[in-house]
Amino acid sequence: MINIENYDTTFSIKNSIVQYLFESSGQKKLIKGVQYSKFETKSGETVYNLGFGDYDSETKGIFDRKSSNNGDARKVFNTVLNTIPKFLKEFPDFPIFIQGSDSHNSFEEECRSSCSKNCNIICKNKDRRIRTYIHFLDKKIKVFSKDYTFYGFDEKKKTFVEYEPKNKYTAILVYKKK
């Protein structure tokens, strides 16, 4: 990965769930987490889903449905990104699936019920998180392609295709090159 300002993380693994926890110290102190959860695809491939959000100490899980707007978004995002090479170093045989929690079909309806933006035709918040990942990847693709292979989910084709910068994808698969 590239050298970018980020928070230190603590690593834990339990029942095939890998977590990197850190303290976001923006306007207030919040515990956040990056969670990699194992699942199998229809074809039987084992993949880990990257989830990110506020850490719930009672459930030991990650709540990814809201933004805490803590004033340190860039450093938090950089921290999330820096867990990817750490994870792939520990688990090089498994790809990472990345999709924003705002990419699900039900998101738009949920958003409209509480949104202050009054989006009439297209929800401006839908797919915002995956667009952030894609924007960053597009800028750094040459650097990352040395060690990783990327695929983007093409909604029209309903399948993953070789990643090409500037295309619209609703999810990304990341593989460590061998």
Rank of each mutant, 00 (worst) to 15 (best):
M1G: 09
I2N: 14
I2F: 08
I2T: 13
N3A: 08
I4C: 03
E5R: 10
N6E: 06
D8W: 05
F11C: 02
S12C: 08
S12V: 02
K14H: 08
N15C: 05
I17L: 04
V18Y: 06
L21C: 12
L21Q: 13
S25L: 09
G26I: 06
Q27G: 15
Q27W: 14
K29A: 10
L30H: 14
L30Q: 14
I31A: 07
K32Y: 07
G33C: 06
Q35L: 02
Q35K: 05
F39N: 13
K42Q: 13
G44P: 04
E45T: 07
E45I: 03
Y48F: 10
N49P: 00
N49A: 06
G51D: 11
D54W: 09
D56V: 00
G61R: 14
G61W: 08
I62G: 04
D64Y: 02
R65V: 04
K66F: 02
K66P: 00
S68W: 08
N69A: 04
R74Q: 13
V76I: 15
V76M: 11
N78E: 04
T79M: 07
V80L: 11
V80I: 15
L81S: 08
L81K: 12
L81T: 12
N82W: 08
T83E: 04
T83Q: 05
I84A: 03
P85T: 03
K86Y: 02
F87L: 05
K89I: 01
D93P: 00
D93I: 00
F94S: 14
F97Y: 15
I98Q: 01
I98W: 01
S101A: 15
S103G: 14
N105F: 14
E108Q: 12
E110V: 10
E110F: 14
R112G: 06
S113M: 14
S114P: 05
S116G: 15
K117G: 01
C119E: 01
N120Y: 15
C123Y: 08
N125P: 00
D127N: 12
R128Y: 15
R128A: 13
I130E: 09
I130N: 05
T132A: 11
H135T: 11
F136G: 01
F136L: 05
L137R: 02
D138L: 03
D138H: 08
K139M: 09
K139Q: 10
V143R: 07
F144I: 10
S145C: 07
S145W: 07
K146W: 00
K146H: 09
D147W: 00
D147E: 07
Y151S: 12
Y151A: 10
Y151T: 03
G152A: 14
F153Y: 13
D154S: 07
K156S: 09
K156W: 06
K156P: 03
K158Q: 14
K158I: 10
T159K: 15
V161A: 09
E162A: 12
Y163S: 02
E164F: 10
E164P: 07
P165G: 02
P165K: 09
K168M: 06
K168F: 13
Y169F: 10
T170C: 03
I172S: 12
V174Q: 05
Y175N: 11
K176M: 09
